[in-house]
Write a protein that binds this DNA or RNA. Structure first.
Lengths: 201, 201
DNA sequence: ACTATTTCTTATCTTATGTTAACGTTTTGA
DNA sequence: TCAAAACGTTAACATAAGATAAGAAATAGT
């Protein structure tokens, strides 16, 4: 995929939120950079401030935390989604999240500085504010559901619910990542799957 | 507390995000309503669309879900915080969350319609977009931490972490609400407390 | 002031999960 | 192509959590 393809995918994506005329888009796109993250390269690490937001034109990334030397997967992002250690990006403080490319990944990125410049540019400010609001709101809704699932559901229920949504995660992620994502260990997920199998046959 | 006190508290709160001049504030405040929610009255119920965002000038509310006839507390909001079933408010769909006043609560509210009107009013649009973005971002950061705690921590760790932050929740909420908030049963929290006591003495 | 309700603890029992390790299979990378 | 690494399942054991019930203490409401 070439840079202009990546950029036009990005444009299509953000125009779900706000539309830009050509003049605006030219200025906006001056703040964008297309880059490739090779498999296993890091988009964010725990010690550093995550200074970028990325749009995944192609590929996938995995979010994880390290606890007691163990790697615990918390989330994934795929093509046509955004990626960032948001809290770190927004607060300017180091996050506790690592983000790593699962495959070679083509990204359209902009930095915190770029975002601040756009927010200070009268020609873009309003639309960038709006874009930011709508994206944040959308994530808020997702997070609300995820938190509710931890409070109201058992691990087995969370897994069957994930099955019922048929999310991409199921096809594309190894099971032990899915287990972490559900808040359990890989061994436990394997047992849950066994229970469900026995129950249905 | 009278209405103007409530309104000026609200103004002080949102001016942490954006500042309004007098003309703007006059228009903004025309969209605001001060109301009282008596103890045990509902701000939101699962069947209905949550059409309001509230600012708590005084009082406190509890968010909960009903599962198998049981009431599971998910969150709290206190004075000087916002309250809404955000996903419902943002999507216009019924939520699954109930929100109930824990004590008589004084609210400054605006409806979805008010928000849309403000977003369409050129005099306010920019600042309201910005306000919305910053509030959503702040919640995003909180939610991110909360999700990480479910994935990386045991219930006991979540509780000791809550203790270490000394959050208001601890002083003002009965323990079985806190248990739900941590994703466990009240009985289990009681046992965790026992374990911690024995461990320290 | 007194009763009803709520809250918290404790006990018992059952069940699910975490931990560790072993094994076979699949995938990866050189 | 071949060795190393990653992956999924299973087993055994220890631990923690859920469910239920009972009882004491605190609180609320009248």
């Amino acid at each position: 995929m070439d840079n202009s393809t990546a950029l036009s995918l990005f444009r299509k994506c953000i125009e779900k939120y706000v539309e830009f005329n050509e003049a605006e888009w030219i200025i906006f796109s001056q703040h964008l950079k297309v880059s490739i993250l090779k498999k296993k390269q890091y988009f964010a690490t725990p010690e550093k401030v995550c200074d970028n937001v990325g749009y995944i034109a192609d590929g996938a990334v995995r979010y994880f935390h390290i606890k007691d030397g163990q790697d615990i997967t918390g989330y994934f992002s795929f093509e046509n989604e955004f990626v960032s250690s948001y809290k770190s990006f927004l607060t300017g403080q180091p996050g506790f999240t690592s983000i790593q490319a699962l495959t070679d990944t083509i990204l359209v990125t902009f930095t915190r500085k770029d975002m601040d410049q756009m927010l200070s540019n009268p020609m873009l400010a309003y639309k960038v504010e709006r874009f930011g609001r709508l994206v944040a709101e959308q994530y808020l809704c997702c997070y609300e559901d995820r938190i509710a699932s931890f409070i109201t559901q058992t691990p087995e229920e969370r897994y069957t619910h994930l099955l019922s949504t048929g999310r991409e995660i199921l096809q594309r992620m190894p099971q032990h990542y899915i287990a972490n994502y559900l808040g359990i260990t890989p061994v436990s997920l394997s047992r849950i799957r066994r229970r469900l199998l026995v129950g249905t046959k």
